[in-house]
Simulated assay, not measured.
Amino acid sequence: MADSTILDRAMGALVGGALGDALGMPTQLLSPARIAELYGHVDDFVAPFADHPVSKGLLAGTITDDTEQALLLGRILVVSGERFDHRRWVNALLDWEREVKARGSYDLLGPSTKRAIDAINNGVPAEEAGRSGDTNGAAMRIAPVGIMMPLEPLDAFLAKVAETCRATHNTSIAIASAAAVAAAVSRGVSGGDWRAASDSAVAAARRGAALGHWVTGGDIASRIAWAQDLVRGKVTGDAIRLITDLIGTGVASQESVPAAFAVLEVAGGDPWQAAVISANLGGDTDTIGAIAAGMAGACTGFSLLPQQHIARLVGIDMSEVRALAADLVAARVAKTGSGKDAAA
């Protein structure tokens, strides 16, 4: 596959994620009923209501922590080289939080990341700080690893996923979740469609669950497969109810990550539809949207994303995103000789 096509898929992952994030920004933390009451059916960027608990004051189309942290992780991956720089990563997250506080944002570090960074600042080694992190923060920002790393050899792929999770989300559930999302992105970047990406995700999650500190919770690989089967063939309204009522849309990895794969199924791999479905779910809508639309974008490419919506995104520098995508693709090509790996 030509490098230009790989770059298009890489851009699709990053910008698709931004679309899902921005569309879900005003609906995050709300119930489906409250979303319908305030906004009707969300199918375009809207501004949050005045007293929104985390999004108040943001303009319609504004990205949040999901996109900002994904781009931040991507930059740390590029400058780290072969060995991920945990200290640089932790300091970058702290600098990011200070910056968003200065901007007056209420969308700050998630519970697992915040707890881990506090522990590191109190002298706990990075390898130990993330041993209780099981929420979706690792999965929400993992797309750059999927862009940079070919799926094969799978052990090397999973090792890189786990390495980036170690400081904040060093648990079996979080690593399995991040591995699933990264695998879907990597499969898409190498030319796979969304169905192939889902298959790779389940396989990676199954293997990734053996890494990190074991914590109790539903098996991620099994829940992804179950979630997609649950909504397969359902009309969107019924699928949304099934996702909300049975899969769950909270910050727990075993809810939001399978929910994102269910959204991918209902959307038929269409990135914008994935973003729209996610925005109306309730709960952690921006994160589910970022994950689902990012995976879909990796499988379609930037050129097939809705350019009229991309032009209205707020808080993202597309030239910086393109430069980052190019650096991540260059690292991938250096590992394989081409962006297409055996799993594609």
Rank of each mutant, 00 (worst) to 15 (best):
L211R: 02
L23S: 09
P153V: 08
S200I: 05
M25P: 00
T168M: 10
S200Q: 13
A279M: 09
A292D: 04
E255K: 02
V333H: 06
G212A: 08
R75D: 04
L73Y: 10
D65I: 05
A33Q: 14
G217V: 10
S4N: 06
G191W: 05
G282A: 06
D21L: 12
Q273K: 15
R103E: 14
A290P: 04
L328W: 13
I224R: 08
V90E: 01
G146H: 13
D245V: 05
T27W: 02
T164E: 13
I224C: 13
A227T: 12
D66Y: 14
D238H: 15
K340V: 14
I35V: 15
H309Q: 14
G283S: 07
D118I: 15
I288D: 01
A203V: 15
E99S: 12
G212I: 13
G301E: 12
R87N: 08
R166P: 02
N136C: 09
G133L: 02
Y39S: 08
T216Q: 09
M11P: 06
D107W: 01
F261N: 00
D3H: 00
M148R: 15
G268T: 02
A259D: 03
K160F: 06
N136E: 13
G188H: 12
L324V: 03
M25S: 05
W214A: 14
E163I: 02
R115G: 03
S278K: 06
R312C: 09
A293G: 06
S105N: 04
R115V: 00
M11N: 10
V276R: 14
T171R: 02
H309K: 12
H41S: 05
M1R: 10
R34Y: 03
L93V: 10
H169N: 10
K114Q: 04
K340Y: 01
V314C: 10
G57E: 14
G217H: 11
Q273W: 09
R312T: 15
Y39C: 11
L313W: 11
Q228N: 06
A311V: 06
S80I: 15
Y39A: 13
V181A: 00
S55N: 09
G57N: 11
